[in-house]
Design a protein around this nucleic acid. Structure first.
Length: 291
DNA sequence: AATTACGACAACCGCCTCTCA
DNA sequence: TTGAGAGGCGGTTGTCGTAAT
């Protein structure tokens, strides 16, 4: 018996993703949202990858409005404080940091913050990973912190602020402000971040969408909601037609045709896809590309 | 200039949880 | 109620770039 593997690891490609694969995955997810699952996506999109790998690539790298690297001091403090409260529940911690993924936070912790945390707490052998810590994260009133290591001394005041974050704490407001700016939902209002080069322009195709917030959240059972909610599988649409209601994408692919697969469609004008994608999303390292 | 050490981060692994038939 | 499939998550490993020797 045993668990059946999600894919044939011997036949799927592994390792770093190429630009071509990124373009295929990005286009496919954005074009055909909510129309399937990650396991079947590679076959439908013509990608020789494991479905879980596709999901990971999208969530951690390709998803719009993500930020990579360049953690601010405020973010560092928030991570340190939350770790003191709930331990290594990276997805919970990342949820408090707009534009950050759990993988990003985890990597940042392992490379930088871990040393800093333990130098402050001097309790390297007792990370807060027990049941109490988990219960604390789920409790609306916080935890019984008697079993947890104390937060870093420099973060005591921040910890108090976090206790009220859910009902309008300043940190939350500031994070949401930044998040809204990133998503293009509001005009940038902060001059401090601009001066440090951390303000990023939002992708034009998402900035005005009412679905932008749910799209950027990325944590959904199915694929992210498409901006226009146009769902047509190339192979299941009856006449083989593919509908592009996004003018930009329509420009890329031209008039609807009868492709055998989505990959064929992409292959017909790959260079243009790449060029347009870079214009849309400015690559993946926002701060670098805007410099 | 070559080699080594280290940091940063992308990607994988495997277990757990959730959903649905 | 139960079992299979799919997603979620945290830990770990691999790869690459760069600083130090």
């Amino acid at each position: 018996m045993g668990r059946s593997p999600c894919c044939d690891k011997a036949s799927v490609k592994r390792g770093p993703w190429s630009r071509e694969e990124d373009a295929v995955l990005r286009n496919f997810v954005q074009r055909f949202a909510n129309a399937g699952n990650w396991i079947t996506l590679p076959q439908k999109a013509g990608l020789n990858r494991c479905g879980k790998s596709c999901r990971l690539r999208w969530l951690n790298y390709l998803r719009p409005a993500l930020r990579h690297g360049g953690f601010t001091e405020e973010e560092d403090s928030l991570i340190l404080s939350l770790y003191g409260d709930i331990g290594s529940r990276w997805s919970v911690i990342a949820a408090k940091l707009p534009g950050r993924t759990d993988n990003d936070v985890k990597n940042h912790w392992n490379t930088k913050l871990k040393k800093r945390y333990y130098s402050l707490t001097a309790a390297p052998s007792t990370p807060p990973t027990g049941g109490d810590a988990i219960a604390a994260a789920d409790s609306p009133h916080g935890a019984d912190r008697s079993s947890l290591p104390p937060p870093p001394p420099s973060l005591v005041n921040l910890d108090a602020a976090l206790a009220t974050a859910d009902d309008g704490g300043e940190l939350t407001r500031e994070s949401e402000q930044l998040y809204a700016e990133l998503m293009g939902l509001i005009e940038p209002q902060s001059t401090t971040r601009e001066s440090t080069g951390e303000v990023m322009s939002s992708p034009s195709s998402f900035g005005t969408s009412p679905a932008a917030s749910s799209f950027a959240a990325g944590s959904s059972a199915t694929w992210p909601v498409d901006v226009h909610d146009t769902i047509l599988w190339p192979e299941s649409s009856g006449n083989g037609m593919v509908e592009f209601d996004d003018p930009c994408v329509a420009h890329i692919f031209g008039p609807p045709s009868t492709p055998d697969s989505f990959l064929d469609l992409l292959a017909s004008s790959y260079d243009e896809v790449i060029a347009t994608q870079e214009l849309l999303y400015l690559g993946t390292n926002w701060s670098e590309d805007l410099n």
